[in-house]
Design a binder for these strands. Sequence first.
DNA 1: ATTATTGTATTAGGTGCTTAATACAATAAT
DNA 2: ATTATTGTATTAAGCACCTAATACAATAAT
Lengths: 126, 126
Amino acid sequence: MPWDIQTDRPIYIQLMEQIQLKICSGIYPPGSRLPSVRDLAQEASVNPNTMQRALAELEAAGLLYTNRTSGRFVTEDTEMIVHVKNKLAEKHVKDFLKKMTELGFNSDEVMSIISDIVETEEMKYE
Amino acid sequence: MPWDIQTDRPIYIQLMEQIQLKICSGIYPPGSRLPSVRDLAQEASVNPNTMQRALAELEAAGLLYTNRTSGRFVTEDTEMIVHVKNKLAEKHVKDFLKKMTELGFNSDEVMSIISDIVETEEMKYE
DNA sequence: ATTATTGTATTAGGTGCTTAATACAATAAT
DNA sequence: ATTATTGTATTAAGCACCTAATACAATAAT
């Protein structure tokens, strides 16, 4: 999964989201070591300062921790990771339903639209 | 529906989205006159320049048109509005499914989660 | 005719994000 | 011991966005 950076939002926010996603989905397993700031920055084609900012904020959130000179690691608190994952899922669902409701679709219509798309195996979303 | 402006994305983009939404949902009906730039800016608590930018871009997209000194109006092309609305809905569905898939949920799980929330009448999303 | 309101344009200043170029301290690797 | 790698900090510059303060032309309202 390559890094996907858009220009319409702060890059460090997008980096945070994508690293968080890699942690929640197991691409970065609990306790595993992340590539160095410089390597990650090069991977994502961003400035090391920007990557550092994203990592520092994820660390403040408790998802990462640092061993001063050996690198950064994913938390071993699997319960926390699961919790973050579920919170994310819940947020996605609610945001989605909110948007569809605002557009004027009711519950039945939303369920119908989404089950249509799911059933037609349109699961390569782009 | 009050204006909801966050600080994490360009304001003029958020204004565009929210005006577009009001058009698609019928709050601003086809052919109706919008409040003046200055009034809209005050409503949304933003600078008139910023509101002007959002309106100008929606006009470039064809959703609005201007009568030089009498004001700005919603397009009367209802077909275009319906098309924009459907495109928006499709985008919301696909983005949602993509996010849930990335998080590690499969189709069945997604359908289960969303139908749970819908059925429990949790339709006051916040 | 005069006034008010419309969209529009311009200039200046402030802020946050990003990059670039360094530099430093701590420690793992050799 | 020496070297390389780690996270971290600093400074300067550029850029997009936003606000503020005006100003102007066209025309609707009076």
